[in-house]
Amino acid sequence: MISCRDIRKSFDRKEVLRGISFEIPAGSIFGLLGPSGAGKTTLIRILTGQLPCDSGTVTVFDKAPEAFTGADRKKFGIMMDSFGVYERFSCGENLAVFADLYGVPRSGIRDILSEVGLGDAYGKQASDLSKGMRARLQLARAFMHTPEIIFLDEPTGGLDPQTMRGIHRIILDKKKRGYTIFLTTHNMEEASKLCDRVALLHEGRIIEEGRPEEICRRYDHQKRIRLHLSDGEDMEMERGADAADGIASLLREGRVETIHSTEPSLESVFLELTGRKLEEDE
């Protein structure tokens, strides 16, 4: 569906993307994970034909972005923070403009708004929306014409945890219906929860790529097991044959409350690879 080979992009001599390659199969959620300033938005702009790259090849629907026609563009749904809404229009009126352009019947607008939890906000003016509601409206606009690929640029950036979960539900629901989704985030928890595959972007390169659990397992150097016992005691042991007897007897005695493995989170993998935290500002 989307394929990139060695994409490079510089702004005024500063090389932001230094050879990015990846493939995204149809029907999956791909997450691009990186701190702010890593080049995530730049990459989305290149993939959607808003910005030319300096070198490398991009193909989306087997086409280069320069060759996109209007019909191709209508197969995209894009949500970017910078994409504004009409402030003096209500939610319904905002979507009506795009319904007309996309050839979506206006009668469906209420349902589209309900799907993103804005059912009651049909007549609410966009300038009066909270940040979370605005994000939902932008999300509705990206999905309203049932596009084939959806690009979400930090869809939950700056939102509170509850609103964030709401948006995750919408995204997962869309995924179930077979949409292909490309999303960027600097929130590793979000990436592990939503994405089939993630790529870690650092200083213009993809430093790691794969299924979230797979990546975490790959960086599990400790290979240890942690037990929490019913008397409140915590035990840690090497995950080898030697541990088996000990654990077995504890289990038999009914003293084990929980067993954990010690594989790292994506966050700590990123930290290990770069020496930098994801949420840290530049």
Binding site: T48, Q50, G70, A71, R73, K74, F76, I78, S82, F83, G84, V85, Y86, E87, F98, L101, Y102, R141
Partner: peptide
């Protein structure tokens, strides 16, 4: 300024 123009152009308005 509000970037709504960009959204229109992406929705295939020339």
């Amino acid at each position: 300024e509000k970037n709504t123009l960009r959204v229109l152009l992406m929705a295939d308005i020339t």
